[in-house]
Amino acid sequence: MATLVAENLSYSYTKQSKPALNKVSVEIKPGTLTALVGPNGAGKSTLLKILQGQNAPDKGEIKIDGENLNRSRSLIALMPQRSSMNWKFPITVEKLVSLGQIKYSKSKSNTPFQIKALLANPNAWINKCCELEATMQRVGIANLANRRLDSLSGGQQQRALLAKTLMSPAKIFLLDEPCAALDPPAKEDFLKIVRQLADVGLSLVVSSHDWGESLNKYDQVIVLDKTVLAVGSPDSIKDKLNDINISALNENNSLN
């Protein structure tokens, strides 16, 4: 169980550019499913990368259970957007998922330090193999273990990527647009799985363009457009979302 608190995060890609994020504060409680919604260019992916520690914010701080992010980075895992993956790579589903276990130390060693730990304790090998199988079963891809990645449907690929992310020892999982390009049934399936994961105590943040009905499946909704426009339960922010929809539409019309 871990609580993530980020306060007043600001970030610009270059010194000259406009801020991608401006004074963003969020709190992710244990065992919750959070939707991070906003239009294109709202800074959703940027925020997730900062929360995971890939990018450092210009201002603000991030703490996990009161500790600085740098000390507890292993508690956060990021599932990247579909577009950052090379889906044509020759690899089986099982091998992809097992890559999620690997963490390389910053030392000169070529051996992943988790594997070193496993060598010291042979029983851990068996546990890891069980964990791999259990994780694949949990997301419903155990029967696809030996299939090549590019032979899967979009929904199956996303579930495989989720299983890889879940193999890390993290407690907070940041999923960057996992439902993009999925058809409605596949999207429904995916959201069902992440709901189950939240119910067993994991914290998940799912970024999305979808401002519609599916928001009811979340415990918390954060509306982002460079800064946090609204945060709360799906019901409590419904009216605000309508306003934001209208203003976004107006903005698009004026651009055209």
């Binding site: 950052s84 993956m85 090379n86 790579f89 690997i102």
Partner: peptide, 13 residues
């Protein structure tokens, strides 16, 4: 393998 498949994930790991 990791870098060819997922460069961002490889960097994060």
């Amino acid at each position: 393998v990791y870098v060819g498949l997922d460069p961002e994930g490889a960097s994060a790991s």
